[in-house]
């Protein structure tokens, strides 16, 4: 189990660095796909099978295809010629992020999060297994306790879709 965690974790982090470091935007997009697949593996380790599948279908499938499609629409040769990195600001960005990370790691290790006990209460692993599957249990929670947020989020998705279509309409943005 530990080996699998380190495998997925290190693959995910290396691909995440790739997203930031590659010059060619297409390579960055493919590195992001690798990072998302590794995250899906981490989700399976955390007993979230349904979300792992969603991660692969929605993130690595739909969203990344959208990204690659937009990169294809823009002229890739011109894009590669552009300056890709802001060299002036990079030392500050890395320094501030390093301070943030040291803080976070200190806080996480010093806090009482690390008790390492599994969650109690409703929907423990045994109860989820008794219901049938992770997807089934998630559906039960989503359509009862989280019904209103679910409806709100679906409305948000509709608004985003209409907004994207309106933005892309012919004539808008042309001078």
């Amino acid at each position: 189990m530990d080996f699998v965690f380190y495998l997925f974790g290190i693959t995910g982090l290396v691909s995440a660095v790739g997203v930031v470091a590659f010059r060619n935007p297409i390579h960055s997009a493919l590195a992001l796909v690798a990072a998302l697949f590794s995250t899906a593996g981490i989700y399976i380790l955390l007993d979230a099978e349904f979300l792992a599948v969603l991660e692969v279908i929605i993130y690595a499938g739909a969203i990344m295809v959208l990204f690659l499609f937009v990169l294809m629409c823009l002229n890739i040769r011109e894009l590669k010629a552009l300056p890709q990195f802001n060299k002036k600001i990079r030392p500050f960005a890395i320094g501030i992020t390093a301070i943030f990370l040291v803080d976070m790691v200190y806080l996480i290790t010093k806090s009482q999060f690390g008790v390492g006990e599994l969650a109690t209460g409703k929907y423990t692993s045994e109860q989820v297994a008794a219901i049938g599957s992770n997807a089934k249990a998630l559906g039960q929670v989503l359509y009862t306790r989280y019904l209103l947020p679910f409806e709100a989020i679906s409305l948000l998705l509709l608004v985003a879709m209409i907004g994207a279509i309106l933005l892309m309409k012919e004539g808008l943005g042309r001078k």
């Binding site: 660095v17 894009l79 300056p83």
Partner: peptide
């Protein structure tokens, strides 16, 4: 890593 990329990259898609 995401924050570093967000600040240092110039390409808006990235």
């Amino acid at each position: 890593i995401g924050v570093v990329g967000f600040i240092t990259r110039k390409n808006m898609v990235i």
